[in-house]
Amino acid sequence: MIQLNLVVIKTSRQEEQVRFYSTIGITFESHRHGNGPYHYAATLDGLTFEIYPLPKGTTEPDTTTRLGFTVENLNNTLQRLEELGVETVQAPASTEWGYAAVVKDPDGRRIELVEQLIK
């Protein structure tokens, strides 16, 4: 069995990223491993999601990685994100994957948000 257990994004805007991802429902803790950089980490159902500073010598974050998250209430989440000034790239709509929208995080990564299906 293979399971994804770690996703790390690197940014020059750690605090903005933490605010963005906290707004969609992720709770972070500040971490540092040995002499490594301070960063933020969250555990999501067995997946560790981390926000690290950009490595020295790097000036631009990778914005080609697309992430997707399931949220409890898409419309409420979008409203809170809009209050932060977050750009909605794709308005909420029913799709084959559920009620979904796409927004941009503070670095410009496209983030897909899908409303949690009621079971």
Rank of each mutant, 00 (worst) to 15 (best):
H33S: 13
G34T: 03
G34I: 02
N35T: 12
N35E: 13
G36T: 09
G36A: 12
G36Q: 11
Y38Q: 13
H39N: 05
Y40G: 00
Y40S: 10
A41D: 05
A42P: 02
A42E: 03
A42N: 01
T43E: 15
D45S: 14
G46C: 09
L47R: 03
T48R: 14
F49Q: 09
I51K: 01
P53Q: 08
L54Q: 03
P55Y: 09
P55H: 09
K56G: 11
E60L: 09
P61S: 03
P61L: 06
P61M: 06
D62W: 04
T64I: 11
L67G: 07
L67K: 05
F69L: 05
E72H: 10
N73S: 12
N73Q: 09
L74D: 01
L74G: 02
L74K: 00
N75V: 15
N75D: 15
N76A: 13
N76H: 11
T77P: 04
L78S: 05
L78R: 04
E82P: 00
E82C: 01
E83F: 08
L84W: 05
G85F: 11
V86D: 01
V86S: 04
T88F: 01
Q90Y: 11
Q90G: 00
A91E: 15
A91L: 14
P92Y: 07
S94G: 08
S94R: 12
S94H: 14
T95G: 11
T95R: 14
E96A: 13
Y99F: 15
A100P: 00
A100Y: 00
A101H: 06
V102C: 02
D105C: 04
D105N: 09
P106F: 00
P106Q: 02
D107S: 05
G108V: 04
R109K: 10
R109D: 07
R109F: 01
R109T: 03
R109C: 07
R110C: 08
E112D: 07
L113H: 02
E115R: 04
Q116E: 13
L117S: 13
L117Q: 12
